[in-house]
Each structure stands twice: as structure tokens, then as C-alpha cells.
């Protein structure tokens, strides 16, 4: 009887079986977006994704086997997920050696040195992506033009980059609106961008699946997206000629991919609802700040990484009230 009740402080570490189920569910949820990327970018999408997944798993296997010499962890699917998410954040035209390097950074710099899954401070896939973005800005920002989406004016530029460029030139939004992909094109994936971010609808389908399987809760995605909507909405209402509408911000770039699949990573997000609120609002604010006022057209990955760094602090100060305890009087 005495052994039945396990009392331990959170986090309650999941068993290996459970981890692999959760990870596999996220992978399944990403399949619709993967299908769209294959339709839009063709065989390139297959090659990039396959290479990325295989290298991530391979690096994790090698490090676990020969450097850490611990039990093998690759069958918990987390390396597969990292590889998949990383590939989703890359343009389909990236050279193979750069993809492999990104995987190496994700696994051998962001994940394993901290002690592997569960101990990494930053989302490995995003570290890999940002590493590549800063190191190879030319290759990381050249996208193959998508035939239906692009008019000549914006061949190969993501909608966000295109808008930023035009605004910098001093053009008003009304002048460039006709060149932007329509919202329905953005919903179905007919636009330039990283492999996994182009089809908003597919990402939302995956979100619903994850909610149904109770893999993630709605909190973080909703806080992130809500903050982005509110912030960009205020800007948009203040000056319609220079700040694009909130709907565009939600559909463009990595908003959905980041908010649903990467900000919600268990290891690198806060543990309770109030913590998630701070974390989600922070991501939303930083993303819009970078997009509107920063040098880069897209800020989702930076925002998530920055807020990842604050998670230990959030977890330390935002603790759930103990059951039965009266709230502290001031």
C-alpha cells in the first residue's frame, strides 16, 4: 500500500513509452503540412525532409552510443520530430551539406550537450534553423518561386519579406496589395516559404488532431496568436497604410508552425497555465516587434528561442498555488 502513492515534485517525468506516443502523434499531425509541401515543392521537399530526419536520428545515435554511452534514446521519436521540424523550417532549395550541418547543430549543440531530451534549454530544431539562417543568409532566404502564387514582382520572396522590402522603399501597402498572394492561396499553400509553413489549413488540421489526442493544450498557441493579433491589430488600426492587417500576420511566415508545433515543445515551455500566458504573450510580442520594426522580415523563431531562455525563470517564479493554502496576504 505504501508504495502505491508516489509523491514527487513536478516535473513528473514521463515514461519512455509515453514520450514516444506523444512524439509520434506530433509527427502524424505534421503529415498534412508535409503532403502540401510535397505537392508544392515536389521531390525537393521529399529530399530535404528525408535527409534532415535521417541525419538527426543518425547524429543522436552516434552521440548517444559513442560519446554519452547511455541507453539508446532514438526510438522515442524525438530525433525524428526534430528532423521533421527542422526540415519544415528550411527552403526546399537548401544544399544538402547545409541541411546536414543544421541537423548536427540541432542535435550535437542544442540537445545532447545539455543531457539529451528533457534537459535541453532551447528547441533543437529552431537552434538548427537560426544557426543556418545567420550563417547562410543567402541560401536560407532564397525560395523557389511557387508558380501560382507569385506575380513577377515577388518571385521567390516570402510574403513577409516582400512586404518588409516594399515598406522600406517607402511604398504604401495599397500599392503592393495586388502583388501579395490572396488569403485563400496562403491557406492552401500557394506561396513561397519554408517547406512546412506554407499551408495554413494543413497546420490547423494538425492542431485539431493534437488537441483531440490531448498531446498539447490550447493555451500556448492561443496566447501567442492572440497577442500577435492584438498587437498587430492596434498598429494596423493606427496606420493602415504602413501596418499590414493582423490576419496577414497570422497566415504569413512561421506563425502557425511556430505557435502550434514549436512553442509547445514540452521541454522548453513553462509547466503551468500562468507561466504559459507569460511565455505565449512574450513570443507574440517579440515576433511582431521583429517583423514590424526589426531587420529580419520574420521573427517567430527568434521569439521562441528568446522565450525558451526565460522558461526556467518562469517556472521558478510562477508556481501553482498549493492546494488548500490561502493566498498570501499583502
Amino acid at each position: 500500500m505504501e508504495k502505491k502513492l508516489i509523491i514527487s515534485p513536478s516535473p513528473h517525468i514521463h515514461g519512455v513509452d509515453k514520450t514516444s506516443r506523444l512524439m509520434r502523434d506530433v509527427v502524424i499531425a505534421l503529415l498534412p503540412a508535409f503532403a502540401v509541401s510535397v505537392v508544392v515543392y515536389g521531390v525537393n521537399a521529399l529530399v530535404v525532409t528525408g535527409l534532415s530526419v535521417v541525419s538527426c536520428v543518425l547524429f543522436e545515435f552516434l552521440i548517444q552510443r559513442y560519446l554519452l554511452r547511455g541507453p539508446l534514446t532514438i526510438n522515442n521519436w524525438s530525433a525524428v520530430l526534430t528532423g521533421l521540424l527542422l526540415a519544415f523550417n528550411l527552403p526546399g532549395t537548401l544544399p544538402a551539406w547545409q541541411i546536414v550541418m543544421g541537423c548536427f547543430v540541432a542535435i550535437a549543440v542544442a540537445k545532447m550537450p545539455f543531457g539529451g531530451l528533457g534537459r535541453n534549454l532551447f528547441n533543437p530544431a529552431l537552434v538548427g534553423r537560426v544557426f543556418l539562417l545567420i550563417s547562410f543568409p543567402v541560401q536560407m532566404t532564397s525560395f523557389a518561386p511557387v508558380t501560382r502564387a507569385a506575380t513577377d514582382a515577388m518571385s521567390g520572396a516570402t510574403p513577409l519579406a516582400f512586404v518588409k522590402e516594399a515598406l522600406k522603399k517607402g511604398m504604401g501597402l495599397d500599392q503592393i496589395m495586388p502583388d501579395l498572394p490572396s488569403y485563400s492561396d496562403m491557406l492552401f499553400g500557394f506561396r513561397s516559404g519554408s517547406l512546412g509553413e506554407i499551408a495554413a489549413l494543413a497546420l490547423i488540421v494538425g492542431f485539431i488532431y493534437l488537441l483531440w489526442r490531448k498531446v498539447i493544450t490550447w493555451h500556448i498557441p492561443v496566447f501567442v496568436i492572440g497577442t500577435m493579433t492584438a498587437f498587430s491589430g492596434i498598429l494596423h488600426l493606427a496606420d493602415q497604410a504602413h501596418y499590414i492587417s493582423p490576419l496577414f500576420h497570422l497566415m504569413a511566415g512561421g506563425t502557425l508552425l511556430g505557435a502550434i508545433y514549436m512553442a509547445t515543445d514540452y521541454v522548453t515551455s513553462p509547466m503551468n497555465t500562468r507561466g504559459m500566458l507569460i511565455y505565449g504573450v512574450g513570443i507574440g510580442l517579440i515576433t511582431i516587434l521583429i517583423r514590424v520594426f526589426g531587420a529580419y522580415p520574420e521573427g517567430m523563431s527568434f521569439a521562441i528561442l528568446i522565450m525558451n531562455a526565460t522558461v526556467p525563470l518562469i517556472n521558478k517564479y510562477v508556481k501553482p498555488r498549493r492546494f488548500g493554502l490561502a493566498p498570501a496576504k499583502r
Partner: peptide, 15 residues
């Protein structure tokens, strides 16, 4: 050239 001039910009360094 992007702004209608005659200068070939450095790739990815328009600014």
C-alpha cells in the same frame, strides 16, 4: 535595381 536604379545590389544585402 530593385528601386529602379542602375546599381547591382549585393545578394541578400540590399540595405
Amino acid at each position: 535595381r530593385k528601386d529602379g536604379g542602375d546599381v547591382d545590389a549585393i545578394t541578400a544585402s540590399t540595405i
